[in-house]
Simulated scan of single mutants.
Amino acid sequence: MGNVTPMLREAAPEVEALELELLLEALLQRYGYDFRGHERAALRRKLRAVMQRRGLRTLSQLQDRVLHEPAAASAALRALHVPPATLFDDPDEARQLRQLAGAGLRGAALPRIWLADCAGAEQAWTLAIILAEEGLLEQTEIHATVASDELLAEAQDASIAPESMARYQAAYVRSGGQGELSRFFTASGKRLALAAPLRSHITWAQYNLVTDASFNEFNMIVCRRALPDFGPLLRQRVLHLFHASLAPFGILGLDRAIDATDALTAQYAEMPQPGWCRRIA
């Protein structure tokens, strides 16, 4: 018989739970990435997809590969980090950014925006294009942080295929854009990259939301894609980090409203756009 790819087998729940904790500890000890504060259901879903692609039956088998094979470690970490965005892939968020950018940035001497756990270059490019259209980019700094050096290198060297532009144009129009999206891009070999005048306003850095401290004061902080996977304790840690980093009357964009029982609730006013609030104290 030929080779048969092993089918994913359900382990006993208590065994799989133990395997997951051991794998998370291995990722921390071996590579320095701490996912122990993430929701377990989200972690299992993402890791099972990695196992299926690699023909593995248990999390223990995945742990063995992660510890000994760089490619397996890279695949697991990539799955656990924020999935990459594409240009204007969230029309609602783009429209909300158009509405809120002026309220959060006008009047500031040197406005700063933090894209925390940014979903790659195209999320940052989307924001830069919106700010350019709103006449706000020239004086604004965008700080985009990602969780690993590998993601950082990819973001800094990113480009898109010319044949993708028609699809991106349609998403851009759905998000409230007008005119030709291509005017914001220049040729980079056989591919396209965001034009240098826009790229110059984006500063990329590796940053770990789990362990790192506040590094600047921002007029707007956006973290809507990573937070859904955070467990309650990690979420609270990150919300306090954002509070320490947000300027008075700055705008915070989250995946959902701050919980009514949270200690920070009284210091924020909800905005009409879902998940957005303004610091008032």
Rank of each mutant, 00 (worst) to 15 (best):
P228I: 06
V66K: 12
V66W: 09
R112L: 04
P274F: 03
E180H: 11
R225E: 15
R199M: 12
A124I: 10
L192G: 04
A108R: 14
M7V: 15
D149M: 02
R78N: 10
P111Y: 11
P84Y: 00
A170S: 13
V4D: 08
A171I: 00
E180D: 13
W114G: 02
E93C: 06
R57D: 07
E150L: 10
I258A: 03
L152P: 09
A266T: 08
I258L: 14
A108F: 02
L43I: 14
I202F: 03
E25T: 13
Q236C: 06
E270S: 11
M7I: 14
P91M: 08
M51I: 03
P13D: 06
L110W: 14
G2D: 05
W125L: 09
R167P: 00
D92K: 10
D259T: 05
R98I: 04
A266D: 03
A49Y: 03
A147E: 07
P274W: 07
R106C: 11
L56R: 10
A124G: 13
L80W: 01
A41V: 15
R40I: 07
E93I: 07
R53D: 09
A205V: 01
R44I: 13
W114P: 06
Q156M: 15
L227M: 15
Q236W: 03
A119N: 08
P228F: 10
R224C: 10
R112W: 02
G102L: 06
A85L: 04
G37A: 03
N219D: 15
L110E: 15
E138H: 13
L100R: 11
R174T: 04
L127A: 06
A144T: 03
P272K: 00
P83D: 03
A166Q: 12
A144W: 04
L23D: 09
Q139P: 08
Q178F: 05
L20A: 04
M7E: 15
A196W: 08
Q178N: 10
